[in-house]
Computed example of a mutant assay.
Amino acid sequence: MTDGVEPPELTADRILTLDDDRFTTDSVALVTGAGSGIGRATAVALAQNGLAVAATDVDEEGLANTTEKAAELDTGGEIHEIAGDLTDDEDVRRIVDEAAEVGDLRYVANIAGLQHISPLPEFPMKQYDLLHDVMLRAPFLIAKLVMPHIRETDDGVGAIGNMCSIHGHTATQDKAGYITSKFGLRGLTKSIAAEGDGPLRAFTVSTGYVKTPLVTEQIPDTAEERGISEQEVVEDVMLGESQVTEMMEPVDVANLFTFGFSKYGQHLDGEDLTWDGGHLSTYE
């Protein structure tokens, strides 16, 4: 494993817990990509905050491991595994329906993601379509299906949080498919906020590189495309523009979703939690 990106252990002391009357097992948070990385950490963190979590992923073994992690930490909430494929509209509808059966569906964390490294003229359209379907089309459809459920709760309060990236604000080479989806996701988020009337909010979370399988798996391809070593990818490409030269851990991102969903995030609507270590806002 390249230095600095070893997957960390998720421990209870790193999870932000907040006092919120809606954070009970009567309230459901749907989390996509919950079988690993940021999705797993977010599912466990929300369960630790007392919520019923509808955890979905195409990876059933990964979902089982997420449930095991929540049990290991003895979370106060619950994990409900819903295996499904976000590229299949009928599966997405089933996922939302099953999540709504658990309780009052108030929150969504659209986290599922994937990457493909290739120059734009050589970018395979099959891979573009896959990135688009998972990271933009599925969140659009999920929002379309979930918004009525949020409005049907006793007070109509809820939030849809979308996992963005610094690549939803700026572009780097060889990631055109990912960047296009993330810029679109910010537009979708603002559209949800525009139609949410206040009680139903939407926000994005934009981070730099996080210690997840998505990051570690793209290091060799980036090194090959740029003709540099894998360590140089980490130090110069991933962290070179950041003032904080340590990658975030998945739980750090999970804590942002917890805050965004809570009563403390009630004025966060249509905007972005940019947690990037100074990458976007500073330069040398």
Rank of each mutant, 00 (worst) to 15 (best):
G4D: 08
P7L: 15
E9N: 11
L10Q: 07
T11C: 07
R14H: 14
I15A: 04
L16M: 13
L18N: 06
L18R: 02
D20Q: 03
R22W: 11
D26L: 01
V28D: 00
G35Y: 10
G37L: 05
G39N: 07
A41L: 11
A41C: 08
A45V: 10
L46Q: 13
N49C: 08
V53W: 06
V53Y: 06
T56E: 01
V58H: 00
V58I: 14
E60P: 06
G62K: 09
L63Y: 04
A64F: 05
N65W: 00
T66Q: 08
T67W: 01
E68P: 04
L73Q: 02
E78I: 06
E81Q: 09
E81T: 05
I82R: 00
A83L: 01
A83P: 14
A83I: 01
T87S: 10
D89W: 09
V92N: 02
R94S: 02
D97F: 07
E98R: 12
A99T: 08
A99R: 04
E101V: 00
R106Y: 11
V108Y: 02
A112R: 05
L114I: 06
Q115Y: 13
I117W: 08
P121W: 13
P121F: 13
E122L: 12
P124H: 01
Q127M: 14
Q127W: 09
Y128A: 10
L130C: 00
L131Q: 14
D133M: 03
V134G: 01
A138S: 15
P148D: 05
P148M: 03
P148Y: 03
P148I: 03
T153R: 03
T153C: 03
T153N: 04
G156W: 12
S165Q: 09
I166E: 05
H167M: 14
G168Y: 11
T170K: 14
A171T: 15
A171S: 15
Q173A: 15
D174F: 15
D174L: 12
Y178F: 13
I179A: 12
G184I: 07
L188D: 05
L188V: 07
K190L: 06
A193G: 09
G196R: 07
D197G: 01
P199N: 03
F203A: 10
T204K: 04
S206F: 08
S206M: 05
T207G: 03
Y209L: 02
K211Q: 15
K211G: 01
D221H: 15
D221T: 06
A223D: 11
E225T: 11
S229Y: 10
E232T: 13
V234H: 10
E235W: 05
E235F: 05
D236C: 03
G240T: 12
E241P: 11
Q243S: 13
T245R: 15
T245S: 10
M247W: 09
M248A: 15
E249L: 08
P250A: 02
V251D: 04
D252L: 11
N255K: 12
L256H: 04
G260V: 01
S262H: 05
K263V: 04
Q266V: 07
H267R: 11
H267E: 09
D272F: 09
T274G: 04
L280H: 13
E284H: 14
